[in-house]
Write a protein that binds this DNA or RNA. Sequence first.
DNA 1: AGCGTTGCCAAATTTACTTCA
DNA 2: AATGAAGTAAATTTGGCAACG
Length: 296
Amino acid sequence: MMGLHQDPTDSGLQLILGLALTSTPEDIITPSPPSILHHHHLTTHRPNSYSSKSSFISPTNSDPEPSLTLALSRETYPHQVVKLPRNIPHNKLSSEDPLEQTSPHSAISSFSTGRVKRERDLSCEEVDATETERVSSRASDEEEDGTTARKKLRLTKEQSALLEESFKQHSTLNPKQKQALAKQLSLRPRQVEVWFQNRRARTKLKQTEVDCEFLKKCCETLTDENRRLQKELQELKALKLAQPLYMPMSAATLTMCPSCERLGGGVGGGASTKSPFSMAPKPHFFNPFANPSAAC
DNA sequence: AGCGTTGCCAAATTTACTTCA
DNA sequence: AATGAAGTAAATTTGGCAACG
């Protein structure tokens, strides 16, 4: 009825999701406001200081159970074996290190800020890499002959645990924190940065899925409510046809509906009676967004 | 004020790798 | 054992925004 699609990929649903949850209380299954609103806030009022950026999604709130997040790689990939790729694309043969790979456009010019930045990051992180690769888990020492494709880093359990722990404290890092964490993990700052970016994306995705489930339940509740009201309306219409003449009631028999302050008939609400003025067992207009905990 | 640079981020996408049927 | 599909996470690309000189 309400045009609420069940498909989470539907753009209409996502729009409704962002709007509908603005009044989401804290006692529902979505402990944090929808990330859509946060994104708008961040992109329009991006703070200068890094410490204030942690408002994106609080990992302790939106991801209270890290073991249930989408990041299950440590459990599903327990062996930490770095294998050579089965097939090596031609365009990946130039350099093993992804950070040392420039895109096909990267050498064209320096007009793109991203390209300039990457080259700059590379230059500063190469120094860092030489310091850290002695104990790094990265298998990245084969690029001398230029015939090895890049191998994707698989973080160790310890590295993942430390990154997760750091993410719980703050979902964004300032440069000092990034450097320190990279040194502690024997990774490059860029890798730490990428991990945090991907981790934030996973958190947001998970939150979106939670929001979607919440809206599905709200939709079901509203559907049931609508069905009930439609049925009640049909009954009232039928009674109206059966009793076309107005039958005045004495003031003593009238009661006030506590929710909508409409007059109802009979003592005790009359819900059990089949009076034409019987009250619905629930409020006439049920808003799950204003009262989602009761709705879902 | 306008401009270019720099740095960070989100979003989308690609890619390497793992798991499982 | 081999294989391909599906899933996952690391890495890349693109574009936007803000701060700074």
